[in-house]
């Protein structure tokens, strides 16, 4: 159908203007800001590509950026292993003929209802080395030797944060995967059972290939989100991302650079914008792939 121009404007413009002005334009504007040095007030100083040189050529800032970058990478792979890998396994259990599957499904999703930052605060109390529930529980069941300062030592802090994050987020992955599994035509499974196929064979030969596109989409989204983590680190370790920056990610480094924090060097919004451009460049290929896949599926639908 055709649409008269005044109606077209009425329907399209409000969303288009808000979205362009407050999302798209700021995303692009970050690029320009990254060419300046600027404490947020007063005059901007044009510095050309100096900010990018700070990120890429040897020096303390580069070390800080790449320290954070590798933590994001580690975050992604461990989170993918737990949230998509273990999540798939839980989804399979919920997709079998058991009583109470619906109740389990709802329980699985409850932690997702809590703000990340509050999940972080809650676990910061449970993980307290002296009186936290986790160490108290280990002592109670005779594993007191394992009790340790989970968030206070470099060797365990980041992994612990990723586990807390997975505790909160895994329900989302489970339910999306479960929906994909339940979407598979039941007659396929019935035919396989009649042919005498075992459950493992059915999972590996039918369910996994047919839900692969969902796994791929989730892996893409998790990648984008992993390079934007902030709340959980903020709640559990603060913007200083201790101990000794062992939990620093690009998000917390960005926050310290652009908005400051106890003991940080001078605020520089230009350098902060440079970090967001860096993150933008990392997720760009994956993001484009995602938009392409969504669009393709829309057209075939």
């Amino acid at each position: 159908m055709k649409l008269a121009k005044r109606y077209l404007l009425l329907f399209v413009l409000p969303a288009l203007i808000l979205y362009t002005l407050f999302i798209v334009y700021p995303l692009i504007n970050s690029l320009f800001l990254s060419l300046y040095s600027w404490p947020g007030v007063g005059k901007k100083t044009f510095v050309g590509l100096d900010n990018f040189r700070k990120v890429f050529s040897a020096g303390s800032f580069r070390n800080e950026v790449f320290n954070a970058f590798w933590h994001n990478v580690y975050f992604y792979f461990l989170a993918a292993l737990i949230e998509i890998g273990v999540g798939f396994f839980i989804a399979l259990m919920l997709a079998s003929k058991i009583k109470g599957a619906r109740m389990f499904r709802n329980i699985v999703y409850i932690p997702n209802m809590i703000p990340l930052v509050l999940v972080g605060f809650m676990w910061s109390l449970y993980l307290n080395p002296q009186v936290g529930l986790v160490n108290q529980f280990l002592k109670l069941i005779g594993l007191g030797g394992l009790a340790q300062s989970w968030l206070g030592q470099e060797s365990t802090a980041l992994t612990t944060i990723i586990l807390v994050n997975a505790w909160r987020n895994i329900g989302f992955y489970v339910l999306v995967l479960l929906a994909a599994i339940l979407d598979i035509n039941p007659s396929l499974l019935e035919a396989a059972y009649i042919d005498g196929a075992s459950n493992w064979k059915i999972i590996w030969r039918i369910i996994f290939p047919l839900s692969f596109s969902t796994v791929r989409t989730l892996a893409i989204l998790l990648f984008i989100w992993s390079f934007n983590v902030f709340d959980m680190i903020y709640a559990l370790e603060g913007v200083q991302a201790g101990p000794y920056r062992s939990t620093d990610v690009l998000g917390t480094l960005f926050y310290r650079t652009a908005f400051g924090g106890l003991g940080s060097s001078a605020i520089d919004m230009g350098l902060g914008a440079t970090i967001t451009v860096f993150i933008f460049a990392i997720i760009m290929p994956v993001s484009i792939l995602y938009v392409y896949l969504v669009e393709k599926r829309q057209r075939s639908a």
Binding site: P26, I224, N228, G272, A273, T276, V286, V291
Partner: peptide, 9 residues
Amino acid sequence: AFPARLAII
């Protein structure tokens, strides 16, 4: 595909 927090400044 591009989280808005990248544009926060």
